[in-house]
Write a protein that binds this DNA or RNA. Structure first.
Lengths: 222, 222
DNA sequence: AATAAACTGTAACAAATGTTACATTTAAAG
DNA sequence: CTTTAAATGTAACATTTGTTACAGTTTATT
């Protein structure tokens, strides 16, 4: 048994071939196919197994991969559905999950996941890294969202993006995307940006940004 | 070697005594004592080991345990300092950490943590659970913060707190604490609350809340 | 029971952001 | 190069929230 997209799975990706074969044959799990537009996981459902989406795509209200919030997130195979919640004390799904097409889901019991981790260091490393990345992402979003003013968010974001804060750098998102990322209205963002330019804090040329006044920049984090 | 507060550590707490002894004796780690008011970890530092705070307390700018944001978080021993970041791809500390008093920190290499996990199922379970709880907490905060209006935040929060939405329930935080939790000003919260009462959506009696109109409640999540 | 402290309600006003609308500029498609 | 669509700049106004201040209420302390 060899799965088509096994390699691109964030958790099972880097395992070597031997392991992959043994891994899947060995795994006590149930595979299930769901039709299109079916609600497969309800908010509040107990999460006692890892749901690995292996074929198709589902949608869920969540924080999306590219950082937008409370939008509909579309998850495409292969990806685990909520790997972090499997081990939390309050192990309930935080959201509904609905299929967008016919999907295949492998349901792996928690005990099996733990066994795999104990026996396969790469698997454990991948699992931990995947969750760690998610945590870091969430922390970052939370820091950004907890800044009250739009100018503050801009300042935080730009300082994070600029490797060298003395040189110009590129942001490859347009204003609409940035506004959505910040959770603010597009014209409001534009106003704040142009004010920051007028105040001599930054300069903008298309998608090239430059920080001109670091002190004023830092004052914006109130 | 037996550590005083070993049992109250979220990760090493539930291990049985045998394990505890073997565990600590066996562990290839370095213990270090830092004086008061020293910056021991800088934002951006590479995080290649688990920093376990075993004695004393430190402060860090972060999301606090009780949910307040971008405030100064005070961490008291025993607790790991940033267990999630150890395994993330971009393994850098997101914040500065400064000692508040003389502290003792055990620095455990990543490889040792992995070895412990492989050999000690309880340890692995604890580590995973601790990180999972953190993730769930962050997701929850993010959902709350991403609601734009104060009334929306209130609605979200109350619906989460009420086990049975048809019966009255208690919130044991006062208005100031709630306002801080929501990241809004106290008088603004009071205004929104009293408007929701006037509109017949909820009733409030001291710290007893009741949801009166579920439909109007749900309309607030715009 | 008296006093002080903390908490709550509320009002007037300031500030920030959202909304709508439209002109202008830039990028993409033909 | 022309035409069209997308992105940006900006203005007027509405709405929400913050700020400050203070009075009324409740709770804790003595």
């Amino acid at each position: 048994m060899k799965h088509k997209d096994f390699d691109s799975c964030p958790i099972c990706g880097n395992l070597n071939i031997e392991d992959e074969e043994a891994f899947l044959d060995d795994l006590k799990c149930t595979t299930k196919v769901y039709p299109k537009n079916e609600l497969i996981i309800r908010q509040g459902d107990v999460c006692d197994a890892l749901y690995m989406l292996t074929l198709g795509s589902v949608k869920t209200e969540m924080i999306t991969e590219n950082g937008n919030i409370l939008g509909i997130e579309i998850i495409k195979a292969p990806r685990p559905l909520a790997p972090a919640f499997l081990f939390s004390d309050n192990n309930h799904f935080p959201v509904d999950v609905t299929t967008l097409e016919e999907v295949e889901i492998i349901k792996i019991p928690k005990s099996e996941i733990m066994r795999m981790m104990m026996t396969n260091p790469d698997f454990m490393q991948n699992y931990l890294t995947h969750n760690a990345n998610r945590t870091q992402f969430l922390t970052n979003r939370l820091q950004l969202l907890s800044i009250k003013t739009i100018k503050g968010k801009i300042a935080h974001f730009l300082m994070e993006q600029a490797q060298d804060t003395t040189k110009p750098f590129y942001i490859n998102r347009n204003q609409s995307e940035l506004a959505e990322f910040f959770g603010v209205a597009r014209p409001s963002l534009a106003r704040s940006l142009s004010e920051m330019v007028q105040e001599g804090i930054i300069s903008i040329n298309k998608k090239e940004y430059k920080i001109l006044d670091m002190n004023k920049m830092k004052e914006l984090f109130v």
